[in-house]
Amino acid sequence: MRINNFKELEREQIVQYEKNTEKVHRSISSNVGILSFIGDIFELYLSRIFGLFVSATGGSPKAPDNRSDNGRPKYPNTL
């Protein structure tokens, strides 16, 4: 088998710096937790944020009424 000390150096580094990689893993997990939390909050309040945006731009958050003025359906097949 061909000797390749670059590979040997890589193996040594993996063992030698295991603690560093664990430390970074903890930090990444904490970042993922924060991002996930922000994502969940955003998801939960997305409809309200959207409504707020619509109100701020002068619209009404209520859906437009499809029915005619006197309460009768606008189209015959509309319930």
Binding site: V15, Y17, K23, V24
Partner: peptide, 24 residues
């Protein structure tokens, strides 16, 4: 891959702290 990536970062950046930041 973390060990391999850390080794590469360390070889190029020459500092453990910088390699940790880079890997993150």
């Amino acid at each position: 891959y973390s060990g391999k990536v850390f080794g590469k970062c360390l070889s190029i950046l020459k500092s453990e702290n910088e390699a940790e930041d880079a890997m993150q």
